[in-house]
Amino acid sequence: MTATDRQATGATWLRRNRQVVAPVLFLLPGLLFFLVYVLLPVAQSVQISFFRWDGLGEPDYVGLANYRELAGDRAFEVSVINNVKWLLLYLLAIPGGLFIALFLNQTVTGIRLYKSLFFFPFVISQVVVGLVFTWFYDPTFGLLNAILGAVGLGPVNVLGDPALATYGIIVAGLWPQVAYCMILYLTGLNAVDPEQVEAARLDGAKGWRMLWYVILPQLRPATFIAFVVTIIGALRSFDLISVMTNGGPFGSTRVLSFYMFEKALGEYGFRMGYGAAIAVVLFLIMLVFIAYFLWSMWRQERGA
């Protein structure tokens, strides 16, 4: 075989397999990063969760001891319950966003300005949102108590009361999240087919029935994305808690991500194994949703 022959076969091999090689090459960087920054750390976290390690000395293998300790840890229980509260109540952002979007989806002078104003809370940092709400709730100087006082209701210390604090933070979190869902629905509403609306109107549909049977089915893709980002947002809640209550009063507003941070990386923490065990539990909870999202996306793709 001569050199030119070999070159020719090489070129034909590439040409023949172009359909396979091109996507692989394009995917390669993404896959590599996914492997190094997502899959390997997940595996490593699982591994660390079987050890007792302060991040300095030699790790001690302790088997399932960290998980057994979690089972009897009340702070962990509180964190899981709070995560559930976040998941459920955060979903209110979806109908909230939908109704604001419906309200803003009209042509009035200056509507762009109103839309941007409604979108504003999503643009500003979560830390700022947290601070604004902390001042709003402030038991002594806060606006909330000034308003309550004006209508004759007693002062309430939202963030200082273990029964109310988590709800107080969720409300703060809903403010930007509603804005996010609103923008998703506003784009979705642009894609609603005016002919279908016209047809429905001729058939006498209006108000709720119009919304439920004609508009909402067409907004399905937007609803799906809103659902995904809201669930992920709820499970990632961390900055608001850190800014508004720092997990307190006496640990009543912790969620799993915050508790993991406290145990593994906080000032009094450095129990890497225990923190990793909490992270693994959080990962398993997330996995349920991730599996559901992947499954429904796969189903949609197959349907299409």
Binding site: P139, N157, L159
Partner: peptide, 8 residues
């Protein structure tokens, strides 16, 4: 003796 709402 302590101020109210000190936990906040």
């Amino acid at each position: 003796a302590f101020i109210d709402n000190h936990q906040s």
